[in-house]
Amino acid sequence: MPDDISDGVRIELDGLTKRYPGQEVPAVDNVTMAIPAGELVVFVGPSGCGKTTTMKMINRLIEPTSGSIRIGGEDVLGMPPDQLRRRIGYVIQQIGLFPHLTVAQNVALVPKLLGWPKAKVTARVDELLNLVGLDPAQFAGRHPRRLSGGQQQRVGVARALAADPPVMLMDEPFGATDPITRERLQNEFLRLQRELRKTIIFVTHDFEEALRLGDRIAVFRERSRIAQYDTPARILADPADDYVASFIGGDSTLKRLALISVGDLAADPAAEVDGLPRVSATATLREALDVMVSHSTQQVACDGGVLTYAAICAAAEPAREREEVPGAR
């Protein structure tokens, strides 16, 4: 991940600890990790494991007891918290739109805090609403209560992006939406992130969501101990211990196939495609396998030719995923 061309900046946590008065064990115990610039890192773990506390220490909604946080090399614990937070996008599950303000006023909030000129703010609001797929002419003047849950969370994302922060913190942002809306929001968000390359910390307890969205996943156990911090493919192929394996469940190979798209594999261009079921290049290997099973065949047609069952099995070989990824540990 080339740091110099990306919009995001690197985040480094060092010995980060949160101890609440009157509690024997720290809520977050000595977390050290680096989040590479422009990557989306998912914190995943059960409720109460400290993943949200760890995230909220980064924008200092929770003050750390000890340890250090650097964003783009700058020590954030020495900064005024309000100014720090204006440079960090923040999206929460309950969205928290201001009900007495319009959609446009909600989105304009941080740019106004930063003292942007009015014309620039207006232009930015339109740009962002378009970016998250809401027509400004239709939505800018509306109040939040007149939006659906999915639309509200789009406004939430637009508001967090408003001042173009290099870093975004997202606390189960799609957790309160229905499964169909959630999948659509996830896909839109992935597309957005491919363009924006922000450094994003994304908290969820949904491992499937972590696999879909994360460039990297940090699996948390209690007290924010990190059980494994790696790419989705490597966590699936080589879970660090039984705890991580329990998150993956019994279908790690299928989950791994879901991370690879048909277009990533070289199809056999010479083979006969007539009469074979077709899959698109953007379909995942898991979907291709599904088509094979449902059609009782070992071959499917795709853009480049024919994809075989044997090729899918070869792609699922854990060894293929073991090449070193820079920055992973």
Partner: peptide, 11 residues
């Protein structure tokens, strides 16, 4: 949540 969002945005 509204208060948290406001604080989180730097108000």
């Amino acid at each position: 949540a509204v208060v948290e969002a406001g604080r989180g945005m730097g108000m």
